[in-house]
């Protein structure tokens, strides 16, 4: 009699055979799973910044034209960067404050480079919701603490760009930077 199904002959080793077969199916499915998961990596990674964007992640700023009391706005990672040349009065005002009384306790020394206390370099991005604070441009209001003032929700920063009043939780971010010479700073 012809049949379609050849039944497994029960006997020695049949149990082992079944187990080996299950193992192969499991291995095949696992391999497919690992493969599919690996394919996800490039699909996710492609959304990270591309090489040309990263290449612009470091800029050099020439400080020679910024006079005492002035500030410039430049662009770092497609965001505003404030470079401010503090006056002696502004430095004194910042130093006068007791850091422990601040929402985000930091001294001006901690926010500048040793021996270059007059150069305050911060991101121009309010730590509340990301607006650009006023105060870097000539004639812009600097808020009641003489630093920066964010018009969106009224955060006021002092002359060390520390948050003093308003909803912002943190001081303006100080990016990583280093002086290449007395007048050139590399940011990023």
């Amino acid at each position: 009699m012809a049949t379609l199904e050849t039944t497994e002959t029960p006997g020695e080793g049949a149990g082992d055979g079944v187990r080996r077969r299950d193992f192969i199916n499991l291995a095949a499915v696992s391999f497919a799973g690992v493969g599919a998961a690996t394919v996800l990596l490039p699909l996710i990674n492609q959304m990270n910044p591309s090489a040309d964007v990263l290449a612009l992640a470091s800029i050099e700023v020439d400080l020679s034209a910024i006079k005492e009391g002035q500030a410039i706005k430049t662009i770092f990672r497609k965001q505003p960067l404030f470079v401010r040349h503090l006056t002696a009065a502004e430095i004194a005002a910042a130093d006068k404050v007791d850091p422990s009384s601040l929402r985000d306790p930091q001294t001006l020394e901690q926010r500048t480079v040793d021996g270059k206390k007059q150069w305050l370099i911060t991101m121009g991005v309010c730590t509340h919701l990301g607006c650009v604070p006023l105060g870097a441009g000539e004639g812009e209001i600097k808020g009641e603490f003489g630093g920066y003032f964010c018009p969106c929700h009224g955060s006021s920063y002092d002359t060390a760009a520390r948050i003093r009043k308003g909803p912002a939780p943190k001081n303006l971010e100080v990016p990583k930077y280093a002086f290449k010479s007395d007048t050139v700073v590399q940011v990023g």
Partner: peptide, 15 residues
């Protein structure tokens, strides 16, 4: 190769 073995496995005994 694993997929092939698995395929043969599942079809074992099925003409």
């Amino acid at each position: 190769i694993l997929a092939y073995l698995s395929y043969r496995n599942i079809w074992a005994g099925i003409k």
